[in-house]
Design a protein around this nucleic acid. Sequence first.
DNA 1: ACTTCCTTCCGCCATT
DNA 2: TTAATGGCGGAAGGAA
Length: 313
Amino acid sequence: MHRVVALALDEVVAFDLAIPAQIFGSTAPEYGFEVCGPRRRVTSDTGFAIAVERGLEALADADTVIVPGVGEAALPFHRASLRALRAAHARGARVASICTGAFVLAAAGLLDGRHATTHWAYADRLATEFPSVSVDPNVLYVDEGDVLTSAGLAAGIDLCLHIVRTDRGAEVANAVARHLVVPPHRDGGQAQFVDRPVASLPQRRLEPTREWMLDRLAHPLAVAEMARHAGYSERSFARHFRAETGATPLQWLLAQRVLLARRLLETTDLTVDEIAREVGFGAAVTLRLHLKRLVGTTPTAYRRTFRGTRVAA
DNA sequence: ACTTCCTTCCGCCATT
DNA sequence: TTAATGGCGGAAGGAA
């Protein structure tokens, strides 16, 4: 049982807190979830009160600590909370933030010299207040291994799914996503928002083409063909694709191939070479390369870790 | 790991 | 005038 503990400070963003509560507290299997904080009762950013079951001592035996966003009034933070966070991290716990929770991690010194992200509207401020943090406002989440940060609000869902995928594999993460009724995978590097601050309707114009690409994943697929399917020139296709997904066509395709390969490694006994061909990589070396690049591991090591993991209903 | 060949991506800019 | 389009060239990056 992997213990996830969320730290609820004053003016905690209710939505941010609800995400890990839903995912680790009820949807994903084999996780335990608790909410802790320096006070037994906090008022959320939207005004309703939350009963906090545990004190800061709960951080002492957490495997993963999640810090949701907090309102302006919560700054500066309780020294005891920051100390407990530092101690948890030093002990080896994985620490993650959602939205403006990154300010708490930064105040605890856990982001020094690291890449991090936060809600796009606060990115400048984070970079100004904590010059030693390398802030990237254009990604959904940043995974530094023992410290993870995510962008605003709904990006917390992407982060928590990413954590489940890391711990339990792609198959379990997909099952959780299906239960939540969200798309199974947005890559961390995806832009938080595209072109306009207020996204207008047609963000799914290329969806049929993406579906078509998924169907033909096993075959070689050139950008020129994709553009033709979408009815655009290559140049315009690339522009629209990036605007909708945050990724270039090839990046997206490679990510989907790796994702499918992960599922096959988890759920089948096909050889690495067979899987490589099955997902559209010409040979096993190519799969190895991209799996290493995107997940940081080798096919056999990945299979050893995740083969046979049970899937949530 | 290195090299070669090929594709992809993106800024620039004229055109619609 | 603004917004979208698509061709071009060079640099980056993928495949073998």
